[in-house]
Design a protein around this nucleic acid. Structure first.
Length: 216
DNA sequence: CAGCGGATGTGCT
DNA sequence: GCACATCCGCTGG
């Protein structure tokens, strides 16, 4: 048939999923290093979607008043306290989903929210996709999940396994992009923690959802 | 561009 | 029982 076999790992052009050791580190560090990584989404009967991450936010443990972990492990947030390298998804405002990557060693809460990404515009065979130029497609955490088909059903996915249909990878020959920091978006209720610069983004990038510069 | 409604899971009372 | 939420798209000025 037409589709060429991928390799056992099923990675992008041979790029395997990032290992668990990448996630099992301090959340801020993971967040910073996620900028520029590739997000790979495979769904049955669909074209593989690949996107370059341009905006994330770090959510720390129980002391972070903006984090869902602030109340300790609840049915919803328990996964943030679990093993790193898994997917945390929640529903917001009754109609949008947000995807987070669990960080820190098991027993310590932490996660990184993926806020925006740049459509890479090629499939696994390097063929051009339909809308490579639409920078609004994955701009904003709710839209990103909608476009990639991420829902609560995906909560708990192991991101270190290509078979999960969702994983991160290093882009071969990627240039080292500049990274800026700012306060997080939509966490005004979090007291002092609302002022912490835990949002990371590529300055000036058209696919970033919030403010794209520090000055405004 | 500021303002606001939508729709429902979650966690506290 | 109920206020609120890591948001988005549409409306009116």
């Amino acid at each position: 048939m037409s589709a060429a076999p991928r390799g056992a790992a099923g990675g992008v052009a041979g790029a395997p999923p990032l290992p668990r050791s990448f996630y099992a580190r301090p959340t801020e560090r993971v967040a910073r290093e996620l900028i520029g990584k590739l997000l790979v989404r495979r769904r049955p009967g669909r074209v593989v979607q690949i996107a370059r991450i341009v905006e994330v936010e770090a959510y720390l443990g129980q002391r972070d008043l903006a984090s869902h972990a602030r109340r300790g492990p609840t049915p919803r947030s328990q996964i943030m306290f679990g093993a790193p390298g898994h997917l945390y998804v929640y529903l917001i405002y009754g109609m949008y989903h947000c995807m987070n990557l669990v960080t820190e060693r098991e027993g310590v809460a932490g996660a990184v929210l993926i806020r925006a990404a740049e459509p890479v515009g090629v499939d696994l065979d390097g063929r051009a996709l339909a809308q490579p130029g639409d920078h609004r497609l994955l701009r904003g955490p709710g839209k990103l999940c909608r476009e990639l088909g991420i829902t609560l059903a995906d909560k708990g996915l192991d991101l270190t396994r290509a078979e999960s249909g969702l994983y991160l990878a290093i882009e071969a020959g990627a240039r080292r992009a500049a990274v800026a920091r700012s306060v997080r978006i939509g966490v005004d209720y979090a007291g002092d923690w609302a002022q912490r610069p835990l949002r990371f983004f590529v300055p000036g990038h058209p696919c970033v959802s919030g403010p794209r510069t520090l000055a405004g």
